[in-house]
Design a protein around this nucleic acid. Structure first.
Lengths: 212, 212
DNA sequence: TTCTTTATGATACTATAGTCTCATAACGAA
DNA sequence: TTCGTTATGAGACTATAGTATCATAAAGAA
């Protein structure tokens, strides 16, 4: 019984002790990740006041530990974000959702980089599905106009916005374009706005590719 | 003279020998990467018929070697792509460039995934720069309209298109949206087209945010 | 050919990831 | 309290990344 790959639901004896140890490791990892560098398993274990062997008893790899480390400010909840927002302007709502997600993304950039790198390593087929925050957010922002667009256009807009909304867009802005957060905000905001308008124009024009 | 961090331009004596060794390492790495797994420095060195120590004389890290490994079908050369293309329609040219890059991207998807994962591992500051194919391609496609746009709009359009043109867009389409290559082509094509039009509309409207 | 220069190979070294084993200390029940 | 169970700590072990050093073989010039 040396290995217990998933101790998420602490069962059996000493459940509380195991939950505490697990939480201590995750909190320690998150705290070290905030500094922007990838800690070693030794460092996380030391910060959590446990031995390295124990750390490996709870997480099979260092990455598994880092990936589960809690994100600061949690994910922006789609429903909460628009709960008391009477606006029906899709551009405004999309911009609001994008801003919220981007704030979270940049705040947790080091962790998200590691999580993305991890998911890239495994084959896309058999891989554990990536958690998908963006789709909910995008659909919530577009809710007021969903009925105004035909299904194909709506789906296309959702997909196009997914290119702008996630960690990957942050990676492009940082690593390829060398932009800071404010500049990234500007570019992604303009892009999202252009896409929403284009979808609405598609509706107005009738034919998908038609121009006046 | 143990280290020679950048032997790209072989200078001094035995220039040819050094060029050959360097090329052998890159070719070996590329061949191993085709299989979809990340090779060790030992494996690359052995495949290239050199010692591990020599491999480190040419590339400071394994990552630096893998990142420079050549891709199948080379990168679509921006100048060659538009050399005998008289078209000045920016939408058409952008679409052509996007199609060419995407073909290459999907052809080398496994290798590009590894390369991206590698580059994500290191901090964005001190990391070895990622090779950047997309910017040249985008600028070549937009050459005919560059003068028609003010500098800020042009720059914004280039950056926005960078979100759609690279490996990251392929990752989003595959891992998040679960699209095949054809569907990805459709979404990115529509997105790029919308962005080009939006930039041209910005010009027509005078004020960046104005709508008729 | 011979000699100098230098790219290379061999090897040892440290640091970290990850696995495994065993002894111990702490928990929880009696 | 005592006692059995078990989470933990300590440490050895392998594999790989990366560095450093020294001897050798090969290139190129005389």
């Amino acid at each position: 019984m040396a290995r217990e790959d998933d101790a998420r639901r602490a069962e059996g004896p000493r459940a509380n002790q195991k939950l505490r140890t697990r939480k201590d490791l995750l909190v320690a990892a998150a705290r070290l990740l905030q500094d922007g560098r990838t800690p070693t398993m030794d460092e996380v274990a030391e910060a959590a006041l446990v031995s390295r062997a124990t750390a490996y008893r709870y997480f099979p790899t260092l990455e598994a530990l880092l990936v589960e480390a809690p994100l600061q400010g949690a994910a922006p909840d789609a429903e909460a974000l628009f709960a008391d927002d009477p606006s029906t302007d899709p551009e405004q709502r999309v911009d609001k959702a994008l801003a919220a997600l981007q704030r979270m993304t940049y705040r947790n950039a080091p962790q998200l980089r590691i999580m993305l790198a991890q998911s890239l390593g495994t084959a896309p087929g058999d891989a554990p599905r990536r958690q998908n925050r963006r789709t909910q957010l995008i659909e919530a922002a577009l809710a007021p106009v969903r009925e105004q667009l035909d299904a194909a256009t709506y789906r296309k807009l959702c997909r196009a916005l997914a290119l702008v909304f996630g960690t990957e867009a942050m990676i492009v802005c940082t690593d390829v374009l060398d932009l800071d957060e404010a500049a990234a905000r500007e570019v992604t905001g303009w892009t999202a706005q252009a896409l929403v308008r284009a979808a609405l124009d598609d509706r107005a024009a009738g034919t998908p590719r038609g121009r006046p």
